[in-house]
Design a protein around this nucleic acid. Structure first.
Lengths: 220, 220
DNA sequence: AGGATGGCATAACACCGTTACCCCACGGAA
DNA sequence: TTCCGTGGGGTAACGGTGTTATGCCATCCT
């Protein structure tokens, strides 16, 4: 069944096809012509719906941020804010692993070749961080973290977890190191670096693992 | 003066032109034809000298790693290994800022569009980390860091500094946050996260700043 | 029922990386 | 000194890319 002309669902069809192409062969394999071939439309459909190839890529990135936000919102707020923070970190990695194609577009592309994010996209990325900021605030309020700008703390948390994730995705972690074990160490280091006592940090990180597993299933 | 045929310096000429192109308009603007136009040669020169466009890009990445290694080796080993570690972090960022084009090629491209690093290149990146591993070892030996696998500690350090640098390079740090201030906080957090006492960490990080400035001039 | 709108197909343009082919500037042999 | 073989690099083409001017026609409104 060939797509009908002037069908508003063409937009969704293109987006799905783009996601599938990226998932199959990496961002490299996303092209206007392949998109056209996969959907039975012409390359023009991309331009009327998204303005440019960059446009459809940015749309995928936006969807990726939305999905991440939705997942982060599933984290409950308990009376152990440090464990809450650790859960946020685990969700971040979970999203990257199960949504790899969007993740590559969101962060693999910022500077380089072809796809460029606008300042607005970057703002959106920062906005997603607000949940982490709020959690950092609670960690400080509970006297677990050293009093400091919550935004700054959130950035440190994000860098640590994002870096770990990118290292794993980029296959820089070779045996005997693996993403799972590395994340545990990283989370503890981050909490201690932010001011938590090491023993309590380890306890909270461990608690966050069982909380995460019960909500998202066993780790990857 | 047009380049002579069969001149071994053509290789260097191409490398320089490539670096200039990337520095001017980003990795995006590096193309075989522009390279040919800039050097007065034809696109074939790229293929006889480097095999492919990927080849010349990997050469630039290799040079980048070499340069980083050379800079890291300038860091002295004192009886304050934590300060030594902080100096390594500062040098890492210094290299990224003053050698941006190579840095983008080294890390901005791993997954995406066009330029791909081989497993060998990644190994080279890991090798560069050996200096950090050695320093981590000394930090543990001096009882400043919690006893742990030095390679693991080094990865944590690298992630923290690299993440900070990428955040800055990607213009994710908007006022009132800036790369300079952020790095100070990050370095302290990293040392504390690795096991150092906060007061001593702050002292060492502060000491590392003056050491760095006296060797590399005032910060950027 | 007829006219205006605008989404999409067609086909072209300029660019990209890559390669088959060929020339000819060079180094070594006679 | 002359000749030859080698191979680096120029020419031009191939198949790909993003993008766009043009025009058709399905849809919606009057």
């Amino acid at each position: 069944m060939s797509p009908r002309r002037q069908d508003p669902s063409n937009r969704v069809t293109l987006l799905n096809a783009a996601a599938r192409l990226i998932a199959m062969g990496g961002p490299q394999s996303l092209s206007a012509r392949r998109l056209a071939a996969a959907t039975g439309m012409s390359t023009m459909a991309v331009y009327t719906n998204f303005g440019s190839m960059n446009g459809i890529v940015r749309e995928i990135a936006r969807d990726g941020f939305k999905r991440l936000e939705r997942l982060l919102m599933l984290a409950e707020q308990t009376d152990d804010p440090v464990a809450d923070m650790a859960v946020l970190g685990r969700i971040y990695r979970y999203n990257a692993m199960t949504n790899g194609h969007a993740f590559e577009v969101m962060f693999g592309s910022s500077n380089l070749a072809g796809f460029a994010l606008t300042e607005e996209d970057r703002q959106h990325g920062r906005y997603t961080l607000s949940m982490v900021v709020e959690c950092a605030q609670r960690c400080v309020a509970a006297s677990r973290f050293t009093p400091d700008d919550p935004v700054l703390i959130a950035h440190h948390m994000w860098i640590g977890v994002h870096g770990t994730t990118m290292l794993e995705l980029g296959r820089y972690l070779v045996p005997p190191y693996d993403g799972n074990g590395f994340l545990e160490q990283q989370l503890t280091s981050l909490m201690v670096g932010a001011g938590d006592e090491r023993a309590r940090a380890q306890e909270s990180v461990a608690a966050s693992l069982s909380r995460f597993v019960s909500n998202f299933g066993p780790a990857m």
